[in-house]
């Protein structure tokens, strides 16, 4: 049956779990983001994508002869193939973070956009999930673009590497979800700088350019509290074909991150706009 009135559509969800917060229409939020995106500046899109490619070219090809092969799980791996998966994971992160922090912050503070959305039959979780999914899409498209560049260069030695794309979805989802949750608690634009303060060291120390075991044990433990090391290990394991249960552990890290982020974002939107 085609439901044609707003009331019939909303009532079709009666009795479903979470009906107070979720109407199953986060796609409408993504559609809105897409319409707004069509007329936005493409420069921002391009720049986020170009960054990891530049790292790959400058560090990868600049250092490969100096560094030589790196041993991963007992196998020698060329330096460029070693850093390529790390940069893939990083581009998933960058894409997801951009929309879920800066963009969301602007909408939260300067527009009354969410007020408008939440006066309809949408719930706060629709808004949270829609915005997060949109941010995820950008992360995913960066990763696919990056993949399209590195795969022909022979930098994805294993067939398992194809799973790096779904892994990128998971990673981007995790970062977007957590990023939006953090952003929704930010009180000022300056506080948003915290995001950058965390991102840069995380990028530099999470084993992008050399294996983590160069660090003392305790520092490795600290680094593994943060998500990017898990993202890199996950993608690297796949592109190099080192399949183990550890990968499932890394993936779990992101599942937990998604759930926590979604929970707090929904809660916060509810507190901000439905009080």
């Amino acid at each position: 049956m085609i439901l044609s009135t707003a009331v019939a559509i909303a009532e079709a969800r009666m009795g479903k779990p979470g009906e107070k917060y979720y109407s199953g229409r986060s796609r409408a939020i993504m559609e809105r983001a897409y319409i707004a995106f069509k007329s936005s500046t493409w420069m921002i899109v391009i720049s986020g994508f170009v960054e990891p490619v530049l790292f790959l070219l400058s560090f990868g090809y600049g250092l490969k002869d100096l560094v030589g092969d790196i041993t991963v799980a007992g196998q020698p791996v060329g330096y460029v193939a070693f850093i390529a998966p790390a940069l893939l994971a990083t581009s998933a992160m960058n894409g997801a973070i951009y929309d879920s922090t800066m963009n969301v912050y602007f909408k939260l503070k300067h527009d009354r956009l969410y007020h408008g959305m939440l006066a309809t039959s949408l719930g706060p979780m629709d808004v949270a999930l829609g915005e997060i999914s949109w941010a995820l899409l950008r992360g995913l498209s960066y990763s696919i673009g990056f993949m399209a560049i590195v795969a022909p260069l022979g930098l994805i030695p294993s067939m398992w590497g194809i799973l790096a794309i779904p892994a990128a979805v998971l990673i981007a989802f995790g970062f977007a979800s957590f990023g939006m949750a953090v952003t929704s608690y930010m009180k000022s634009f300056q506080q948003l700088e915290i995001v950058n303060v965390v991102l840069l060291p995380m990028f530099l120390f999470s084993g992008s350019f050399y294996p983590l075991d160069v660090f003392p044990e305790w520092l490795q433990t600290v680094i593994r509290i943060f998500p990017l090391a898990h993202a890199i290990d996950l993608v690297r394991g796949l592109t190099l074909g080192n399949i183990s249960w550890a990968l499932a552990g890394h993936a779990m890290y992101f599942v937990v991150m998604i759930v926590i982020g979604l929970f707090f974002t929904t809660r916060r939107l509810n507190a901000l706009f439905m009080r």
Binding site: V7, E11, M14, K20, I35, A36, R112, H115, A119, S121
Partner: peptide, 25 residues
């Protein structure tokens, strides 16, 4: 309305005191 927010809002058209149009669209 606390129990059935989305279902109730489906019946309503709301014109808030302050416009909250989507300025990007």
């Amino acid at each position: 309305p606390e129990q059935f927010g989305p279902q109730i809002r489906a019946h309503l058209g709301v014109v808030p005191q302050q416009d909250n149009l989507d300025t990007q669209l």
